[in-house]
Nucleic acid binder design. Structure first.
Lengths: 90, 90
DNA sequence: ACATACCGTAAGCAATCGCTTACCGTACGT
DNA sequence: ACGTACGGTAAGCGATTGCTTACGGTATGT
């Protein structure tokens, strides 16, 4: 879904044409993505254009980054503790 | 789940104690996370220690980053096209 | 006013998820 | 050898997911 929207904004019909599911199914997925702020909607006539919301992508990136840093930090602490209790062997 | 493992490796029992679900449920979730490479396992005695896999976190970060860049790029293209067809107004 | 294009929503349904309880296997201490 | 701690797996179940078909609602062209 997001991979279709990478290349820019699309209408519901355009998206459905590129996916192996029906148009209402696309509509329902888009609702979830819109509620999750992952996607933004823009109406022009009867067409609804959807595009990726870069801001939320940044939030996701920040979260993953944080997790990554914490994981590395606690691993470093683990290694340090290991060396202390094992003596400075090797 | 991942938020429990942020602070370092834990055994299955330790994790279950910090969560509102049973130990087997934790075990099942860990299996999914392990299959998805999000988590690594280390056995010592009968205890199974689980920790976050930083490598996969980097992969996720790369994907989100890529998506973010594409979204911005196509938005820029959209704006440029808009200005051209609207004349150099404003 | 009428037909058409575009899309959201409701209902219904099979498939999957995520949990609990019960059970079994393995490693360790005595 | 026996008891205990630790944890994976199977079975079963209600809840949720994700789809399709059917329908209604709004904007556009004639």
């Amino acid at each position: 879904m997001l991979d279709v929207l990478r290349s820019g904004s699309h209408t519901v019909g355009q998206i459905a044409a590129k996916m192996p599911i029906s148009r209402p199914a696309v509509s329902q997925q888009l609702r979830v993505l819109r509620d999750a702020q992952l996607v933004t909607e823009r109406h022009v006539g009867t067409r609804h254009y959807f595009s990726i919301n870069p801001a939320t992508l940044l939030d996701m990136r920040a979260y993953v980054d944080e997790l990554w840093r914490d994981a590395l930090a606690s691993y470093a602490r683990h290694v340090a503790l290991q060396e202390r209790t094992n003596g400075t062997s090797r």
